[in-house]
Design a protein around this nucleic acid. Structure first.
Length: 297
DNA sequence: GAGACGATTCGG
DNA sequence: CGAATCGTCTCT
């Protein structure tokens, strides 16, 4: 058993050293969960050979203060975490429809277990408003499953659908959240292809096919309910939003949301938004684009 | 513990 | 356009 550690206290180091000799029959996963309990401020990931500990933001601060900022280790941590670039609470704390539009052009960054940035530009979103929006999971109120929708703006809400995941970000408003429907892949595209190929081995993927759907983007960026649901994206070291391209309002198509046939009078509300002409959008709405073009002229 | 269902995806 | 496939909810 090998331990990779970036920053832990002397007390915790002692605890970890005592667990490095793995008893026969004890899995690395159970040891990882023991460490996770002890280090409640750290993210602990394990496989059969290693345990990896990623510092959370408060620990990054202490690293910065206690180390020479020019050392390569500190530099590396700075580059791979959200410390400087992640949007804060004020970005997310706005009405759902505003956040859905504001997210277009911004970058979604997922720092993988290997410390690699999986990143794409958001090109399509949907707003789900909470009660009385009959399309929203939160329409009937808070449950175990949808609790993240009621948490602070900037909280990730990840749910399962037909054995896939979809990802939302909570906005201002009770039970309101924005569904991320499509990304244009930007960084480490070969790694995203590998992640997609876990499901469909051997299939070749063009870049624009990787994240052109709400579950496809979760597969490509390794967004799972286990890892990401209820994560605070203003503080998370696993997932956050960074600034990206400026999108002019007249390039945003407003149209009906997808696959909410049960939502009655809410079916036709124009709560889906996408960047006109972007190749990664999951479904085009030609009628809505006509309206959009007329408006421009 | 069975049965139904879904803000999806893939292949034919 | 139908099947896959699985976590969650509901009812027994």
């Amino acid at each position: 058993m090998k331990i990779i550690q970036q920053q832990i206290t002397e007390d915790n180091r002692q605890f970890i050293m005592s667990t490095t000799k793995r008893p026969v029959g004890k899995s690395s996963t159970s040891i990882a969960s023991k460490i996770r309990k002890k280090l409640d401020s750290s993210d602990v990931h394990s496989d059969s050979k290693t345990i990896k500990i990623t510092p959370k933001r408060n620990e990054e601060q202490s690293i910065k203060l206690s180390n020479d900022p020019n050392t390569s280790k500190v530099k590396q941590i700075k580059e791979t975490t959200s410390a400087t670039k992640a949007f804060d609470y004020t970005f997310y704390n706005r009405p759902c429809e505003d956040l859905a539009k504001a997210l277009l052009g911004k970058k979604l960054v997922r720092l993988s277990d290997k410390g690699e940035r999986l990143c794409g530009t958001i090109v399509e979103t949907e707003a789900y408003l909470g009660h009385p929006d009959k399309g929203a999971h939160s329409y009937k109120g808070k449950t175990n499953k949808n609790e993240a929708m009621f948490m602070d703006p900037g909280t990730a809400y990840v749910y399962h659908i037909h054995s896939y995941c979809c990802m939302n970000i909570s906005s201002k408003g009770d039970g309101a959240a924005v569904l991320l429907r499509a990304l244009e892949p930007v960084e480490n595209i070969p790694s995203m292809i590998k992640l997609r190929q876990k499901r469909t081995p051997g299939k070749p993927f063009k870049s624009h096919e990787l994240c052109n759907g709400p579950s496809k983007l979760c597969l490509s960026l390794d967004v799972t309910k286990d890892q990401i649901n209820k994560d605070d994206m203003t503080k998370s070291t696993k997932i956050w939003i960074e600034d990206g391209d400026e999108i002019k309002p007249d390039r945003i198509v407003h149209c009906k949301r997808v696959n909410i046939n049960y939502a009655e009078e809410w079916i036709d509300k124009p709560l889906r938004y996408y960047i006109q002409g972007n190749k990664c959008v999951s479904k085009l709405d030609k009628e809505a684009e006509k309206q959009c073009n007329m408006y421009i002229m």
